[in-house]
Write a protein that binds this DNA or RNA. Sequence first.
DNA 1: GAGCACTGC
Length: 701
Amino acid sequence: MTDDRKSDRANPYLAHLQNSSSTVNKYTGKPYSERYYELLKVRRALPIYEKRDEFLKLVEENKVVVLVGDTGSGKTTQVPQFLLEYGIREKNKMIVCTQPRRVAAMSVAQRVSEELEVPLGEQVGYTIRFEDVTGPKTILKYATDGMLLREAMSDPQLSRYSSIILDEAHERTLATDILMGLLKTIVRTRDDLKLIIMSATLDAGKFQDYFSRDPEYPLTVPLLNVPGRVYPVEVYYTPEPEKDYLEAAIRTVIQIHANEPLGDILLFLTGEEEIEETCKRLNQDIPLLVKEPKPFRVLPLYSSLPPNAQQRVFEPPPTNGRKIIVATNIAETSLTIDGVVYVIDPGFSKQKIYDPRVRVESLLVSPISKASAKQRAGRAGRTRPGKCFRLFTEQTFKKDLLETTYPEILRSNLANVVLTLKKLGIDDLVHFDFMDPPAPETLMRALELLNYLGALDDEGELTQLGRLMAEFPLDPQLSKMLIVSPQFQCSNEILSIVAMLSVPNCFLRPRDAQKKADAAKARFTHSEGDHLTYLNVYYAYKHNNEDPNWCYQNFLNYRSLKSADNVRSQLEGLMNKLNLPLVSTDFQSGDFYVNIRKALVNGFFMQVAHLESSGYYLTVKDNQVVSLHPSHGLDHKPTWVVYNEFVLTSRKYIRTVTEIKGEWLLQYASHYYDLANFPDGEAKRDLEKLTLKNKKPRKHK
DNA sequence: GAGCACTGC
């Protein structure tokens, strides 16, 4: 503590720091406990602590500071506290620090509240979807980046905050990218705002350039480097490219297990199926190929694994043995497993790509970036020096891998982003200062879609409907459908369907019980459409008191259903707030399901397929030959269907399909089904016939 | 007749 006072005197910028030798907590008025001082000791040993004065001086003198620090530097917990102590918080404004993931926001807030010895939710809190643990006393809050973006929609200057910290900016999530675009302007107009960008090593210069560059208002943006605290990881490459990375990976695991000292192994693969297969192989092969193998436990790890199975990777390894964890990218950023000493990196992951030409997002196994490879290697050095075996050549690493993964904004359908930006008052999207501007075609597709949905008028201005749509945390098609559903007397039902469509698939199909699972699903199936099947499942879940056992017996994913129920409540709250009535058609009425299907058409008229005489479906307008996804529950092949998703795997499939009538397309989406501008084909001829049929009775009237 | 990288609102 003596050291501290000395440095306070030495640095004039710290003149109004609170007296750090005080024994009374200024927030609670209570004397500090022993634990407080223990934590303080740990905090002062963090690498970031040595940079505190330098950091605060930079903040004092600049509006924007880029702080670069690797894992273990302590930046996420300490930097917001530096700003707090420093008194950067002015006029009752708050400090907010964003995180890409909810768990991080929660756990860091918890940690910091302990370090400051205040109850979580009072001076220090967090805000994530479904949960706002903050209060009137809150001066520091952690929030997901998406949540701060939502806040910006009602407070475009983010005027509640005196300091905004964007953490993990190098991950370049959609929300962080949009926030950066907004804040670049806000920070130039608000004199009472400090912006801190925190990032891992790569790309730091890019953030600096981006925030400083402006023809009218250039800024000096200093960069501060903080060393991380990790152990060295030795990297090995293969001398020749591997033909089969799975075989190579299995071989490497076996070699490590046979020859290397104890320490857990982490193998990165691309997906569930590959992981389960590899786990099986390892359990078979290790006893066969290793003489008297040390004890080992093979553990799969991916997001759709039930939480208790995920937790197993944190259990201690078998006595005198090791854990072999076979994981997706989840182990690259979301979950950190201490005790990993060996990382095996084949160099691939599944990545989302968006093709604006066919308007399709799909997942593709692709080579990872250098940044990812480094991040993966770092996972071996958490507790002691480690080794990373890259199953590609050094040449490949240096010459072929991209520096960083393309930011999400370049790989996504931007309909939702465009709606958000419009709501934020950004009129000229084409000239919006994105750090990485998306392809013009992607923006055009998004504008076009929003125009067809009626969210934007022909001048590109947000309509009343568009403003309502932006209130919902949903894709535009879903929010449109929800907003019009009261007109079809089925908002209660559409609310349930939208919730079910917003969560991971609830149907389980374990490989050893596929027939039973299919039989269970058949009991919920509605033959007119999968959307209606989802409604049945949701009803059944509620009627069975949301019972996890009932879910288990019926091969339903309890987590998904619970989450759907949460989403539904949130959406219901928004419907009430926006004065959208919650109504149903009498279940006995023949119109109960008809009305629901009509509402579906109102949101998804652009995702319609027509049954051709060939027996295949053709999507309207873009004429893609598609098949019904084998998971569908229709008992016949309807002439017209709406679909929720276009999936590109071994074939082109449409998934979650419901039968509709061609008349409805003409009735509710005449602007889109304008036959004068419709591509020739069977679909058009069918619609023309319907037009004639509709005209005749009118003439008689 | 097949799948579901990972987040987030």
